[in-house]
Design a protein around this nucleic acid. Structure first.
Length: 809
RNA sequence: GGGCGGUUAGCUCAGUUGGGAGAGCACCAGCUCGACAAGCUGGGGGUCACUGGUUCGAGCCCAGUACCGCCCACCA
């Protein structure tokens, strides 16, 4: 390692950071071993999609969570940062299908088994990039414990979970309306949709009344589903239609008689105020249909084309069918008008194909009982979301959680552990059964559906530790402590981990969940690929360094939505550089020891300031207020440590005062410890240059509370006030002893000697302050009603200003 | 439509039980002697979105309005 004094005055993070990332891992300093003698602390990082890249949200939450992990490690806890990646069903299947398309083949051509093999090959080739990205961000994860949700052990846990829920009677099969993606030919949960503004046409169509007495007009954007209409609905209070409720209308084209019903879910102000009810192709219609006991015919097939409900339309595209139906209406003067209509329609978040609501036989998990212990745990704050507003959201979204559609009709994922015999009996088992549980038939076929990706994610905090086996790791590291995630993941994942942890292990999986800020682009828009506003955290790291990036993201993490700021990153880079150069100053004369021998006022003062900052950092982190931690450290280092303390001791340093240097190095050591959680690399690098390093900084003990250095704060404050006055107006204050020595060192001897500045202007300023304070104290109501300490403070100010005025007169 | 966050200096933001409007960057000026590819010092610059209320006193508390944004939602 090169000598400090030979080193570049510009701190260059690039080589340094990668070297420490390697060293920490190679020396096993991230490794977590079960140890009953030590208290454990576990940060479970959300497993990113195996196909994806880490984005700014990952970088932000990792900066926060890893800082806490590093703090806890220094505080002597047995820290495990658990990492891994998720198989991400549809997402991965998509990526591989694209890959296959470029080779001129397809999933269907290969068949299921060959396709799965190709996915695995693809993963072996590209799957390692996520872990590399963790390392570049300085994540202090136990890299030996990387888990994948498709690992054999993990699959076993998923199967156990399914069987457990099935045996509890909470898993059932039902025909329900679901979101169908015609491209992927699978159902999607509501949470996998993305609304997209779309240009549409709103057709107003007349449905003749069955009694021949006119018609009722209906506005619709999906005329193709008309053949599946089973009713016309109006709002019960709608005067225009009240007399029609109970009568019948005739569905155009198919000329079927359907009832006219009243339902409060109909919006009277939209369109004509009358709604066609098509239970098979619209979620609200489905709900209304079930409540009114209506049939559920389907006219659209899973491929998005017309079904054979109406033979003459079978196989047509929806557009073609719509054309036929509208033509039919037009010929009979039933098409009242067609108008342009722009509205948001749900699309598949992966391929942006318009969703077809469809009735389909799916597997469901009942939430009614499963969620109850989780709701209780949240209400009792056994699990707490931060900030508080997100806690309320978590509770209410759990309370409102509908039954969970857990089956997907894709190929990549955990296939349901369900087998059917030729008679249709269902056998559920963790591994393939020899015979049907009911009839004993050996002719079993396995359910082709796979589980929702989040079904396996729900087990992450304990399946990664070996559950369902009773492993040492599970006993040592469950329950964990910290989770970090984005807002929109609360319902998808956080809540599900909580209820599955409680159900399967009887304990909450973690105590605190940090819902990190959403990082917007610098212009305030959402970061997204399609908008071209995305910023890759690795690019930022390459350019500015990991520490600077971690600092910058921490610094901006104050509100719910925050703008990415290169300025904040740059501030972090300057902080690293400042500390680096402060260290060069202290190390350039070849130090032999770092030991506290505080003799002078400024030494007792800086040690007191460092101690106060230690307490502040701990307090802020306990409140998950990371932005202020960055702020406090910045000012400690720039203002207190460098601008005041180092300037004050410079004359003694240059005079070869060994005590001054040893004490300064000991003070630096403490500063490095405080900053390490946020900026691990530069602090470790400087630490390695300090004399007599017994251990790495990453595992050095965090400073204990220490009140030995309670400096004569008043004396230093007097110096700082004198300096401020001198800098402002050139008016020198008479100081003696230590106070004069520090003043001279910091404010510069050449200028301090003068002292014939604008005394008049300073006198005016002080007189203004005195007048203001006197006015306030003369206000009887202020003196009577303000808190006594406020009045007292005002009196003190008045006296101080008078003293200062005396000092310069 | 619902939930939530925001509006303070040219920019990005802080402002902790209500009591002197701040930081970083940018800009201007000076200094630069042995840490700092820079640093230090000083300066200019703000109707704290708006309206009303509570209070001796409001950036902060209350009510309302406007605008920006994020998330969620079954107006066909």
């Amino acid at each position: 390692m090169p000598e400090m004094t030979e080193m570049d005055p510009l701190y260059r993070p690039q080589g340094v950071e990668e070297r420490w990332q390697r060293t920490w891992e190679e020396e096993g300093l991230y490794d977590a071993e079960p140890d009953p003698a030590r208290e454990s602390w576990v940060y479970c990082f959300p497993p990113p999609n195996v196909t994806g890249n880490l984005h700014m949200g990952h970088a932000l939450q990792l900066s926060l969570g890893d800082a806490l992990a590093r703090l806890r490690r220094m505080q002597g806890l047995n820290v495990l940062v658990q990492a891994g990646y998720d198989h991400a069903g549809i997402s991965t299947q998509n990526a591989v299908e694209k890959h296959l398309a470029s080779e001129g083949t397809s999933r269907r051509e290969l068949g299921r088994e060959a396709f799965e093999k190709r996915v695995w090959e693809w993963l072996h080739e590209y799957g390692g990039t996520i872990v590399h990205q963790f390392r570049r961000m300085g994540a202090s994860m136990d890299y030996r414990r990387i888990r994948f949700t498709m690992d054999d052990d993990y699959v076993r846990a998923v199967m156990r979970f399914f069987v457990h829920l099935y045996e509890r009677g909470w898993i059932y099969r039902d025909n329900r309306i679901i979101n169908w993606c015609p491209h992927h030919e699978t159902s999607l949960s509501d949470l996998e949709l993305e609304d997209e503004e779309t240009d549409d046409t709103l057709s107003t169509i007349r449905y003749p009344l069955a009694d021949g007495d006119g018609w009722i007009a209906i506005a619709t954007v999906c005329s193709a589903t008309i053949p599946a209409d089973v009713a016309v609905a109006v709002h019960p209070d709608d005067e225009r239609y009240r007399h029609l409720v109970g009568k019948e209308a005739i569905v155009p084209f198919v000329e079927r008689r359907v009832p006219i019903i009243a339902d409060e879910r109909v919006e009277p102000d939209f369109g004509t105020g009358a709604l066609k009810i098509t239970p098979a192709h619209d979620p609200m219609d489905f709900a209304i249909g079930r409540d009114h006991g209506l049939p559920e015919p389907s006219t659209i097939a899973p491929d998005g084309r017309m079904s054979d409900l109406v033979p003459e339309l079978a196989g047509l595209s929806q557009a073609e069918a719509e054309q036929r139906i509208l033509d039919w209406c037009r010929e009979r003067d039933l098409l009242e008008k067609r108008e342009h209509y722009r509205h948001a329609v749900p699309t598949c978040e992966r391929c942006h194909t318009r969703i077809e609501p469809m009735i389909s036989l799916q597997w469901w998990c009942s939430m009614a009982e499963l969620k109850l212990p989780a709701i209780r745990a949240l209400r009792e704050r056994a699990v707490a979301f931060h900030p508080e507003s997100q806690h309320r959201f978590a509770v209410s979204s759990l309370e409102d959680a509908p039954d969970w559609n857990i089956s997907r009709q894709i190929w990549w994922g955990h296939q349901l552990p369900v087998w059917y015999c030729p008679d249709g009996h269902v056998t559920v088992a963790e591994s393939e059964p020899a015979a049907c549980g009911e009839c004993g038939s050996a002719e079993l076929t396995r359910e082709t559906d796979v589980l929702d990706t989040w079904f396996s994610s729900a087990l992450w905090p304990f399946a990664t530790l070996g559950w369902p086996d009773d492993t040492e790791s599970l006993r040592a590291f469950y329950p964990g402590d910290l989770q970090t995630t984005a807002r929109e993941i609360i319902r998808l994942w956080e809540n599900r981990m909580i209820f599955s942890g409680l159900e399967l292990l009887g304990e909450i999986p973690f105590r605190d969940v940090i819902i990190h800020s959403t990082v917007l682009a610098p212009d305030g828009r959402r970061m997204s690929k399609s908008l071209g506003t995305g910023i890759d955290p690795l690019d930022v790291i390459d350019e500015h360094g990991t520490d600077a990036t971690r600092y910058g993201l921490t610094k901006i993490s104050s509100a719910q939505d925050v703008r990415f700021s290169y300025n904040a990153i740059e501030e972090g880079r300057r902080l690293a550089n400042k500390l680096w150069n402060a260290s060069r100053l202290l190390l350039q004369t070849g130090p032999t020891e770092a030991e506290l021998r505080p003799r002078e006022l400024e030494e007792r003062w800086i040690l007191a300031r460092i101690e106060a900052t230690r307490a502040e950092v701990e307090r802020l982190l306990a409140e998950f207020d990371f932005a202020h931690v960055a702020d406090a450290l910045y000012h400690l280092i720039f203002d207190d440590f460098c601008d005041w303390y180092l300037e004050a001791i410079k004359p003694r340093l240059y005079a070869g005062d060994g005590d001054a240097q040893a004490t300064a190095l000991a003070a630096l050591e403490r500063v490095l410890k405080l900053l390490h959680p946020v900026m691990p690399h530069v602090t470790e690098e400087i630490w390695s240059h300090l004399p007599d390093r017994a251990s790495r900084l990453i595992v050095a003990p965090w400073p204990e509370p220490d009140d030995r250095f309670d400096a004569d704060a008043g004396a230093l404050v007097r110096v700082q006030e004198a300096a401020e006055r001198f800098r402002r107006s050139g008016v020198a204050t008479k100081l003696e002893g230590d106070e004069k020595r520090i003043f001279d060192a910091v404010v510069r001897p050449d200028r301090a000697g003068g002292g014939n500045g604008d005394v008049g202007a300073e006198r005016e300023r002080l007189r203004g302050e005195i007048a203001r304070a006197e006015t306030m104290l003369a206000n009887e109501r202020f003196v009577a009603k303000a808190p006594p300490e406020v009045v007292a403070a005002e009196r003190e100010k008045l006296e101080r200003y008078r003293r200062e005025l005396d000092a310069i007169e």
